[in-house]
Nucleic acid binder design. Structure first.
Lengths: 238, 238
DNA sequence: CGTGCGCTTGACAGCTGTCAACACTTGTGG
DNA sequence: CCACAAGTGTTGACAGCTGTCAAGCGCACG
């Protein structure tokens, strides 16, 4: 969900090609609405942003969180989600224009492609997290995403509330709360108030989430389900 | 999931710009593997294709079905999913090349953007189907997708097996089977063997799926949850 | 006609949603 | 500084739904 973080190199390239406007939003404020004409895309400078959809019955569903360096709102035609500020945020804002127009400069088009591809892989990873897995497994996978975002620090900040996490993982706030307690009881994390946790057993957390600490299987002795080899595809070709 | 169907106009454009090779696969055959270098993308000419991912624990998760006119495999770098033939299929196959290279012709790049955007909105719609909804609701939403694909015909063909549907909706085959029975018992569909159903109550099915027959609310008297207005976004801007 | 696979259905256990109560934090006003 | 209210988060009880296990049916294929 934060795989959309851009590498510094990409940021510089984007800065060199595109003109940006800096905007600020307060926590809870709407940045753009679902269905609105997609005329701009955004990059988070500071703070946390969430994108969400609303269902006919009133249910809300978050499709991702975006942190410093992440890009959101790169839709075509109309925004497929709404975007809201989770904390006070600063964003840079770029004109989309119509990227299919002949006049669109080539570098901008390349960036659009790269952004879309990254967003796509994010969405697929996210689909996967939600597929037929328990609340504790989903939360573990989510926390690992946040941890990856934070770097080597075992302390992970949680700028969003439990309700936001619940709507992202398609659970209720209650179940999320219970899952936090369960991970804590198992000794995988320590809950530090509402806005931070410490990962005390990274390997255990990865194991629960169904991920490897390094991202791929590097120990040939590791026991894998026979079908799991397909999980990694043809490594020699990658 | 079949939102990736291309309009006839787009197909002609693609034919005019890109060279294609026609390939055939037998039912169950692998078209490409997850993690394999993404060197080609495909368009279905005839038959049905599924894309899937495998989890460490051996679980399979389908990310979409693709029918005549649909595009799949438009990934960058490595394929994020495997692709397999559900039925005997005929596909057209195009070189991806490196779409970020300067040498890539402009029309191909435009097509890549259009395809990615369509795939993105498909993935988001699909995420939404799976979010905190019952088995019957998911199946209803899925069947409506297939029906939209089929056109006005109330009879909907199901080229895929129950297990495929289950892995798409993140359910078990048993629950899918029960959901079919439930929809039938409620009088929304009639099950005709294993490979076809008839939608007998389209409005009821849409209602259950949380969708409107026409795609948007056109009856102001319809009772909506207060938050649901956001579901449609800013209509005046669309 | 027989076999095998896909599918359906039932029984039961486990997990998650719902309802409810309560603790804690935050913000407002006195 | 305190009192109070509102919002957020935690926990328990319970019901409902789905996964698991198991049995059996029916279609397809040889």
């Amino acid at each position: 969900m934060q795989a959309q973080r851009t590498a510094p190199a990409a940021m510089q390239e984007r800065q060199s090609h595109l003109r940006a406007t800096t905007l600020k939003f307060r926590a809870g404020q709407l940045i753009f609405e679902q269905g609105q004409t997609a005329s701009r895309w955004f990059e988070v400078v500071q703070g946390t942003v969430r994108t969400c959809r609303f269902h006919i019955d009133g249910n809300r569903h978050l499709t991702g969180f975006f942190f410093s360096g992440d890009v959101f709102g790169a839709d075509h035609g109309a925004y497929g989600t709404a975007a809201e500020a989770v904390t006070d945020v600063v964003v840079r804002c770029f004109r989309i224009g119509d990227i299919t127009q002949e006049a669109t400069p080539r570098p901008q088009l390349d960036e659009a492609v790269a952004i879309l591809i990254r967003a796509m892989s994010t969405a697929q990873r996210y689909q996967f997290i939600m597929g037929r897995r328990s609340a504790a497994e989903r939360l573990a996978a989510f926390l690992l995403c946040l941890k990856q975002q934070a770097g080597a620090d075992p302390r992970v900040q949680l700028p969003m509330g439990r309700t936001d996490i619940a709507d992202l993982l398609s659970l209720t706030m209650h179940t999320v709360s219970r899952a936090f307690s369960e991970l804590s009881r198992r000794g995988l994390i320590e809950v530090e108030g509402r806005r931070a946790i410490v990962v005390t057993d990274n390997i255990g957390l990865c194991d629960l989430a169904g991920e490897y600490p390094s991202g791929l299987a590097n120990d040939p002795d590791t026991q894998l389900h026979p079908a799991a080899t397909r999980c990694f595809g043809n490594l020699s070709a990658a």
